[in-house]
Computed example of a mutant assay.
Amino acid sequence: MRETREKVQLQPLDHDLAFLDITTEWDLSSSYHDWRPSIAVPATFVPATIPRVIAICNQKGGAGKTTTALELALALIARGLRVRIVDVDDQEASISVWLRYYMDDRPEELRYNLRDLYFNAKVKLSEASYPTDFENLTFIPSFPDLGEVDEKNPVGADTCLQRRLRQGADDVDVTIIDCGPRLGQLTVSALVAADDVIIPVKASSILDMKGVAALQKVVNVVKDTLNPDLRIAAAVLTDFSRSKMTRRIGGSLARAYPDAVILPARTNVKVGEAQLAQQPLRQFAPRETTTLDYDLGARVLFGLGAAA
């Protein structure tokens, strides 16, 4: 049994720091010299309500899904919300590596994870949920054997996560699902369970846009069959820096999803340093631009405003 660690209580960031401006549309009309990157919040965007389930998806690996999931979660708990993260990524670099500390406090035979929820009906959601170092943040971990869900396609897999999350609907305000890069059964299950989809796109990568196109096909199938109310709530331009390509990619996303928020998450060396330290960026570098961008993005998505 490990020594008990004191919980980290996150505070809202100062709203007068270096946030991006908020506009109603992605700017493609001004000259590049005059262009100022901003968060585009269309007049038609409807802020998320509570409770909410959000899936973070893109077929392309390395787009920033895990960073986006974790930073949005921490921004929300800093505002007093209770958040659950579900790790639907079986890669070793997944969010479970960052948050697995508390699993060691349970006997090995009781260390359930997400795979157990798909294959063992007797395992409850609460038994596969773990606390973290952060007040009001819990998580459901996964490990490489989660890939068996895609391989074996257990009965009821499409709706499994939706049914399971309903078991703990009163325990949290927001559930954030961190999806893997494969558009298989696990991603379908996450989309069926979700109210909103947030798509991280590396701002300098045209290949990421191909991943978005592939994801959209799956989203369309899910909307037509099992979850007609699913919506694309936001696209996050990760590793964002001011360039003509980035501007075009943002414009393409704004045209594809006219009712969605387009959120730049500015590039910063601290992102990689935080990952090496196995710490969330908000804890490692709370005053850096990328942290501030995610913080304001979370406020916009839930209609919380810019002020603390």
Rank of each mutant, 00 (worst) to 15 (best):
A214R: 08
N136K: 14
T4I: 14
K244A: 12
V53T: 14
L99W: 11
R248M: 10
V222E: 00
L72S: 05
V46F: 00
L72E: 00
P51Q: 04
Q167I: 00
V172N: 11
D90R: 03
L70Q: 05
G303N: 05
K65N: 08
A63H: 03
F284L: 08
N120S: 13
M1K: 09
V221W: 03
R52H: 09
I249V: 14
A307V: 03
T66W: 05
D21E: 14
N120F: 06
K124E: 15
L114G: 02
L117D: 13
N227Y: 02
G62D: 11
G303L: 03
P264F: 06
V201D: 07
E273H: 14
F45E: 05
R163L: 10
Y101N: 04
G62P: 02
L125F: 14
R100L: 01
M1I: 08
A18S: 11
Q91C: 09
V300F: 06
L70N: 02
A48N: 08
H33N: 09
C57Q: 05
L226M: 13
V97F: 08
C57A: 15
E109I: 10
I22M: 10
K210W: 03
R242C: 04
L207N: 12
N220S: 15
E109G: 02
A274Y: 06
Y32S: 09
K7W: 11
V174W: 09
L17Q: 12
V222G: 00
Y101T: 01
N113A: 14
E25Y: 06
I176P: 02
V271T: 01
K223P: 00
V155N: 10
T289L: 13
I199C: 01
P228E: 09
Y118F: 15
A285K: 09
V261L: 11
G168Y: 01
A194D: 10
Q278M: 14
R2L: 15
Q283W: 06
Q167Y: 09
V236K: 04
L117A: 10
A213S: 14
F45N: 07
S30V: 10
L70P: 03
S241P: 07
A193V: 07
D229M: 12
L281F: 04
E135C: 11
